[in-house]
Write a protein that binds this DNA or RNA. Structure first.
Length: 880
RNA sequence: GGGCUUGUGGUCUAGCUGGUUAUGACGCGGCCUUUACAAGGCUGAGGUCGGCGGUUCGAACCCGCCCGAGCCCA
């Protein structure tokens, strides 16, 4: 029985333990029907990082969805992934064990990573469980595990066999610090101090001088062309001639191209292989020479002549100084500009021509756009981000990384002819550095030696496979085809994630799974916003405004955090608000206290449905039907805020303030049955939101009935409210208007007492209601302590009505009278109008009755006070 | 610099394809011990809907520009 005060600390921890111990939320493995299976594919968090408030927010929304659909008869698979395959966890391992990954064989080092990550995973698990999320802890995966490595390599091979991957010498974004190619998404911008140099170039034949401005003079030896804008009249005469590079002496063509930015420097620009993205375009468009001056480690090559072997930064200073000696340095000024850097190490990226593996994406943009369109987007507007991302793609997806650890490419090359030899699918996972290729001789040339691929796969190549990992995707060698352990969950019903990762994580996942299975991997995607601090600013360590989940959950119940999280419109950013949590606490308390009252008004044994329900009871149950339908629709549309606020308002106002107050006066089976039915329904409706407190009350009140079959609950409902069925509408006939009016009469009487400074239980002698509240007389009388209630359903109230104004119905008047509306308004305002046979004559127009309403004021001259209750007049007389 | 999103009483928020009285909560003022809850109930005050301009009889809503915030990209 709920008694005393609610103690969330004890209650929440107890249920969290029970849910895990009893495997309450385990996915029923016998599920086979795609219509009953319901799966959520969450992007796995990096376990080496901390759980932050954004995780709390996102996870709660996922959990509300999971619980809602579970109660709606779906077999829910809500798995959890730990992302520990990446540089972050490798660095962590090196730090913790004080080792270098280079000193170990790749597989060996990964074993160490797995060991180190295990404790971090345990910490993550504990915290996720302490939020009471309805995750199936039997269904977890680690992105570094051999099983996932196998899936990653299978994915590589499948795409290779489908002709979606290629290896090519091409300009790639390169980090000279990490000595690896990186993808576009791994770079970020950084404001850095630099210098702008004006350098004197000369035309080869005439010796005429012109100025080139650059921040990177060390690229002079890599210069392969000079560009002038076609609209640049002043310098047009240079086009077609050749320029001589100072210090290095080689001649390059001078070419016109409209990609030149005339506003910067002299408007004449040099093209080097490669300084930036533009250089690559020019290189390709004009078929220029390739002069590579900077090598993979950021040092100068032989192209740089005397500067060979210097680091590019040293070479820059040396070249500037030599230019100055030669008089070719016209100016040098300090500037700050944005530099494209590698997000991991902060070092400026280079563009190098290297041999890399790519996944084709550019050729199927339209198809991938269509794949995105086929998903349901919550909210719909977020699709635009996906759309713009796909339309703006400039590179195929670079998937090779020159790191020594990570998931290896399952590939060897013939030492003689470079023919690619791919691993056998049933041998995966393999590491070419340790394992032998599947053939003894090259199928192409017969050569017997092979060079292993020592690159590893980009971590996104793995992170983008989570739907397949969850569905148990694998290759069946006997059948010669790909299979799934759980085909019923694919495509996955919901993919939740923040709007910050739509462009790469979601995109990569969609296209890879689409290529493997021919199906868009998600039925829907649910985009949550970012969590901001109380001042709507981004949380960041440097600002010191980061909310620590542990500290908050120390102070507030998890259910309060759930209430806060559900206060967001999906897709919008949400500020952390302590008041939001406090409001949650209040609702939890209200639910608890109301449950205590229900318990005392309708104790066990619970009454069966009486033959006839009182009008008020039918009205309440019918109102609950309405709320149930609204709530269900909102949850289906992921309108969490509307769902939450609607249910809260209805419960607090209609059930607690209106119904319960009346029910206190009643002692009949109809009331007892209704209290119990309503209460049981409210618990269920609140269950996805307030997961713990509803479970606690459910167990105190309703599991016995579910267990012994006394109630119409399923046997599973005896285990947990979260396994109970979502309510169906009862469909009772009720007079909605009469009930509404009766509540308005009660409200008016309450206000009357409040205005008169009377206690709410003060008696009232006579109340006359001029409106139809038949069937509710005893309810009004009981709760308001009315001695004599007289209802006049059809009679006119004995009041004088005075016309106080005219209310135009603009929706019809506007279109009908257009520009004359201001005149009509002025006429009414000035009182220059007449009512003739129900028509309004004003400003030369005759308005028909449906175009306006007459505003009236009721005045009562008799004994007692006149109150307004909705449309009805109520007259109150007290015996003073 | 570009794209997307967002800006409503002190704070958070609702507001559908434009219709005139802009929703609710938190906080604030006043009153009320009523069969759970005073962390409750009743009631009141508080808003030029970020700014400017436009379209319209009528704009929180549509259009343009500007400002602030968030995300992604350059």
């Amino acid at each position: 029985m709920p008694s005393g005060e609610y103690d969330p600390d004890a209650v929440e921890a107890r249920w969290q333990r029970r849910w895990v111990d009893d495997e309450t939320f385990a996915y029923p493995e016998e599920t086979a029907d795609p219509d009953t299976a319901f799966a959520i594919d969450t992007p796995p968090p990096t376990v080496s990082g901390n759980l932050h408030w954004g995780h709390v927010y996102g996870s709660i929304l996922q959990d509300v969805v999971a619980r809602f659909h579970r109660m709606n008869g779906r077999d829910v698979l809500y798995p959890f992934g730990y992302d520990d395959n990446g540089i972050a966890s490798e660095r962590l391992t090196e730090r913790e064990l004080d080792v270098r990954h280079q000193d170990f064989e790749r597989r060996e080092f990964q074993r160490k990573c797995r060991e180190v990550c295990r404790e971090y995973e345990a910490d993550f698990t504990e915290k996720m469980q302490a939020m009471g999320l309805s995750i199936d802890w039997n269904n977890t995966y680690r992105t570094i595990s051999p099983e996932v490595q196998r899936v990653s390599q299978l994915s590589f091979i499948d795409l290779y066999e489908k002709g979606r991957e290629y290896r090519e010498q091409a300009p790639a974004i390169w980090c000279p610090e990490c000595e690896t190619a990186i993808s576009q998404v791994e770079t970020e911008d950084d404001e850095q101090d630099s210098h702008f140099h004006d350098i004197e170039f000369a035309v080869a034949d005439s010796g005429e001088g012109f100025t080139i401005s650059t921040t990177r003079p060390e690229l002079l030896p890599a210069c392969v062309a000079v560009f002038v804008h076609p609209d640049d009249d002043e310098n047009q005469h240079l086009v077609g001639q050749e320029a001589t590079i100072p210090l290095f002496g080689h001649d390059v063509p001078i070419i016109a191209d409209d990609r030149v930015d005339m506003e910067t420097g002299s408007g004449i620009v040099m093209c080097c292989t490669f300084g930036d993205q533009n250089d690559i375009e020019w290189y390709q468009a004009h078929d220029l020479d390739l002069r590579v001056a900077i090598d993979e480690s950021g040092h100068m090559t032989d192209v740089a002549g005397p500067y060979e072997g210097m680091h590019s930064s040293e070479a820059r200073e040396a070249i500037v100084s030599d230019l100055e000696d030669e008089g070719a340095l016209l100016d040098r000024r300090a500037i700050t500009h944005t530099v494209n850097v590698h997000e991991r190490c902060g070092v400026g990226v280079e563009f190098l021509v290297t041999e890399q593996w790519y996944v084709k994406v550019l050729d199927k943009r339209e198809e991938y756009l269509q794949a995105g369109r086929e998903m349901d987007w919550f909210p719909e507007k977020m699709f635009t981000r996906y759309e713009h991302w796909v339309e703006g793609l400039q590179w195929d997806w670079l998937i090779s990384r020159q790191r020594s650890s990570g998931i290896p490419f399952p590939v060897w090359y013939c030492a003689d002819c470079d023919h690619e030899v791919i691993a056998e699918k049933d041998a995966l996972p393999v590491d070419p550095l340790s394992d032998d290729p599947p053939v003894d001789a090259c199928p192409e040339c017969g050569h017997g030696e092979f060079v292993p691929e020592d690159d590893v796969l980009d971590t996104w190549a793995t992170s983008s496979l989570t739907p397949l990992i969850n569905a148990g995707w694998d290759y069946d060698a006997d059948a010669g085809e790909f299979t799934m352990d759980r085909p019923e969950i694919y495509p996955i019903d919901v993919r939740p994630q923040g709007h910050d990762i739509i462009s790469f994580w979601l995109f990569h996942t969609v296209i890879k799974c689409y290529e493997h299975t021919g199906e868009v991997p998600f039925e829907s995607t649910m985009i949550n916003g970012m969590v901001l601090d109380e001042n709507r600013e981004k949380m960041s360590k440097s600002k010191g405004n980061v909310v620590d989940p542990d500290a908050v959950l120390e102070e507030y119940p998890v259910d309060a955090a759930r209430f806060w999280a559900a206060g967001s419109a999906i897709g919008d950013d949400l500020p952390y608000q302590e008041k939001g949590l406090r409001a949650g606490e209040k609702l939890i308390r209200k639910l608890w206290n109301a449950s205590k009252l229900v318990e005392s008004l309708a104790p066990e044994p619970y009454p069966a449905e009486p033959d006839e329900l009182a009008e008020l009871d039918r009205w309440l149950l019918a109102e609950i039907d309405r709320e149930l339908e609204r709530l269900t629709e909102h949850l289906e549309n992921r309108e969490f805020s509307k769902a939450r606020d609607g249910l809260r308002t209805f419960f607090w106002g209609t059930f607690c303030d209106d119904y319960l107050e009346i029910a206190k006066q009643r002692e009949d089976d109809s009331a007892r049955y209704t209290l119990r039915t309503a209460h049981r329904r409210f618990l269920k409706l609140f269950a996805p939101l307030l997961a713990h407190v509803t479970e606690e009350i459910w167990h105190a009140e309703y599991v016995d009935g579910a267990a012994d079959g006394a109630s119409d609950e399923t046997p599973a409902a005896a285990e947990s409210i979260h396994l109970a069925d979502w309510p169906e509408p009862l469909g009772l006939e009720a007079d909605h208007d009469a009930g509404e009016l009766a509540m308005a009469v009660v409200g008016a009487l309450r206000k009357f007492k409040s205005d008169q400074q009377l206690p709410l239980n003060a008696p009232i002698d006579v109340v006359e209601v001029y409106g139809d509240v038949r069937g509710f007389e005893d309810d009004v009388t009981g709760v308001m302590h009315v001695g004599d209630l007289r209802v006049h359903p059809d009679a006119e109230a004995p009041v004088e009505t005075v016309t106080t104004g005219i209310d135009l119905d603009y929706a019809t008047v506007g279109p009908a009278y257009g520009g004359d509306v201001p005149d009509i308004e002025a006429g009414i305002e000035a009182g220059e109008y007449e009512l003739v046979d129900g028509e309004l004559h004003v400003a030369g127009h005759e308005l028909s009755p449906e175009e306006f309403t007459v505003e009236t004021d009721r005045q009562y001259q008799g004994e007692g006070d006149l109150l307004e209750a909705g449309d009805a007049a109520v007259i109150v007389r007290t015996g003073d």
